[in-house]
């Protein structure tokens, strides 16, 4: 194994997981573009390594999110059934289709994520009353450490949520991302969940979704330890460090920074799909 190359992969995964864990996106949305555009990794090997890194990111992040009460496990359970099926279908398709199509699809998704995050950055939902009807038992609450207040919510628009989450599962299988880039904004904007609950629940689901993706790629021999192991090690460190860093950075500045990064990577991926390379 070339040590310099391994360190470069681990470094890219470290940066990707810091960026991803800051807004609960998971690292996958950054890993595939960084690996393919700048480190010359084959897109399908990059997707396989990304799926493993996303599982890692979810396991590391979910320990913290579960302890903090940010994960709505009932909602995650309801949404994950169809999402996991979507991921298996997506992964099966990904192995068979053209790599440039995968790049173009991820490019479009990155640009979408950038704009949805910009739109998302000032959305705050008021607490629901404790006695509000909740026939499915999905009401949840947590203590928000940044305000010291109890935040209480009921996820809304479940049918749309489950449908779009299934699509996120398909995208996860196709692209090796966790789908947090779709589920996070979906839960916050459409299902009216607080940002921390959306990030926590999404992060927990992402591990299960990416597991299904990783299993399909593993069975097809697309998990290359020379790529996946540095990605995991970078993610181990990056996702832990990213959550600490988040507390010190002003959220709105963070979102603007991500908007720039995601847009740049998205356009780079799109151009790369058509044979045009920018910035390396």
């Amino acid at each position: 194994m070339d040590i310099d190359y391994s360190l470069a992969l681990a470094g890219a995964a470290f940066v990707a997981s810091i960026l991803g864990s800051m807004l609960g996106l998971g690292g996958g949305v950054f890993i595939v573009p960084l690996f393919t555009l700048y480190l010359g990794v084959d897109p399908k090997i990059a997707v396989g390594a990304s799926a493993i890194a996303v599982v890692t990111n979810s396991v590391v992040g979910s320990r913290r999110h579960l302890s903090n009460g940010f994960v709505n496990v009932r909602l995650a359970t309801m949404m994950e059934v169809t999402t996991a099926i979507g991921a298996i279908a997506g992964a099966a398709v990904a192995i068979a289709i053209n790599a440039d199509f995968l790049k173009a699809l991820l490019g479009v998704l990155l640009v979408y994520a950038a704009f949805s995050m910009m739109r998302n950055r000032k959305v705050v939902h008021p607490n629901v009353p404790e006695d509000e009807p909740d026939p499915l038992g999905l009401m949840a609450s947590f203590d928000d450490p940044s305000t010291g207040q109890v935040v209480r919510y009921i996820p809304r628009n479940l049918r749309i949520g489950i449908s779009v989450s299934t699509l996120a599962g398909v995208m996860s299988g196709l692209l090796g991302i966790g789908g947090g880039v779709i589920k996070g904004p979906l839960m916050n904007l459409v299902m009216k969940m607080p940002v921390k609950a959306a990030a926590g629940t999404s992060s927990f689901m992402v591990g299960m979704t990416a597991l299904a993706t990783a299993a399909v790629f593993y069975a097809d021999g697309k998990i290359d330890p020379q790529v996946a192991v540095p990605a995991m090690l970078g993610t181990f460190v990056g996702s832990s460090y990213g959550s600490h860093l988040t507390k010190r950075i002003h959220t709105e500045r963070l979102v603007i920074l991500f908007f720039v990064i995601l847009t740049y990577l998205g356009i780079s991926m799109l151009l790369s799909a058509f044979g045009i390379t920018i910035g390396g």
Binding site: R63, L66, V73
Partner: peptide, 30 residues
Amino acid sequence: TPDTTHGEHRHHVQQATLIGDTIRVYEWGF
């Protein structure tokens, strides 16, 4: 099924009971 009838504290206790083993599995797996 939580808050509507039993209040915040009971909900937190129930949630902790549900997820305690999952947290331990994640820690050991890591």
